[in-house]
Amino acid sequence: MIGRMPVAGRAAAARPRPSRGWLRRWVGLAFVAPWLLAFVAFDAIPIFSGFYHSFTDWSITGSPTRFVGLANYREAFTRDPLFWKAVTNTLYYIGFSVPIGIVTAFSVALLLNRRIRGTTLYRTIYYLPSVVPTVAATIVWTFIFETRRGILNWVLEFLHLPIVRWLSDPAWAKPALIIMSLWGMGSSMVIYLAGLQGVPQELYEAAEIDGASGWQRLVGVTVPLMTPTIFFNLMMGLINAFQVFNSAFIMTGGGPFNATLFYMLHLYNHAFRYFRMGYAAALAVVLFVVVLTLTAIVNRTSDRWVYYS
């Protein structure tokens, strides 16, 4: 694999000089060559080898690898109790964080799109958390969620609400992670804002002349015209939520009582704690197929609700 690199590198740099027509026809490929090489080495080969390894009991410990057929898949679906736990945890996380994230980011963008003072400052403030490195943000929120020293419980106490054991109560650990994910909704908010600024002003004026109320204008004009942007954020949100890892890994390590054992954590544990690479590869293939299917379904439904002018 590495043996191929210098060859393609030379092909990209040096310019063969037969006929000029030949050169003109293929010069573009030379520009694309580095990526193409990377694609073969870091995408195509790993994906195929991942498929292959998912049918083996490959382990990093050095014991000989055997072909086990569908055993890994059978184990995941029938014998691994934590597999379904991880699946339901992940679906819970996706089911709440993605829609709530879309509604929140869209609502903030709507407010920021109004002609009021200070929108630039507000935009900066709302975008700010999404530039904070994930590890740093997670550490910050771990401290905020602490039962006895965290400011979130201080706020609850101040409001005379019962205190919550955010990260040690299995019922609250997932909501805690969802709350934290909402803090970083700034980049999708900015995407909505850019989309909103592209909605032609005349449409609002026309709707107003027709006597449409603010709500009617939102539902009848803004939302339909924003569906391509909503669609984009939905797809990205789904793909990211399926792979939620860093926050849970750092904050709870999958606990308490596996309440935040998301799919990626389960996979990580099998690969790098129990060194069952073959089984982990099978888990990765399952995730890949699920994400592919789901995005295909969302994509299919898109021509029914996404409006392209």
């Binding site: 790993p46 590869a281 293939v285």
Partner: peptide, 17 residues
Amino acid sequence: STLMMPYVVRLIPLFVI
């Protein structure tokens, strides 16, 4: 298509390689 692909699909095989 690689833009849409979950990183985890490559994580394990890349580790192996």
